[in-house]
Computed example of a mutant assay.
Amino acid sequence: MCGAELTSLPEGVQRVARVLQEHGHPHGPVMLDDAARTAQQAADALGIAVGQIAKSIVFRRKSDDAAVLVVTSGDRRVDEKKVDALVGKTGRADAEFVKSRTGYSIGGVSPVGHAHPPVTLIDRELFRFDEVWAAAGHPHGVFKLRPQDLERLTGAPVADVVQEPSQ
Rank of each mutant, 00 (worst) to 15 (best):
G141K: 10
I48S: 07
V98Y: 13
H27R: 11
D84Y: 05
V161Y: 04
V87M: 02
A54C: 07
A42H: 02
S8K: 12
A36K: 07
P29R: 08
S166A: 15
T120V: 14
A66M: 09
E125H: 10
D149R: 08
G108N: 10
P29M: 01
K144D: 01
G91H: 02
R76D: 09
T38M: 04
A39L: 08
E151R: 15
D149P: 12
A156P: 13
R101T: 14
A67Q: 06
V158Q: 07
G24K: 11
Q41C: 01
S56Q: 09
K81T: 07
G12R: 07
A4G: 12
V109R: 08
S100Q: 14
A42M: 07
V78Q: 08
H116K: 09
V68I: 06
L9P: 05
V78S: 10
Q21F: 12
G12E: 10
I48D: 05
G74E: 10
G103R: 09
T154F: 11
T154Y: 12
A42R: 05
V70W: 04
G47A: 15
R61G: 02
P111Y: 00
V13F: 06
I57D: 03
T38H: 08
T154W: 11
A134I: 03
R15D: 10
A66W: 12
G155P: 08
A115C: 08
H116L: 07
E5Y: 06
A115Y: 12
A67T: 08
Q163V: 09
R101F: 14
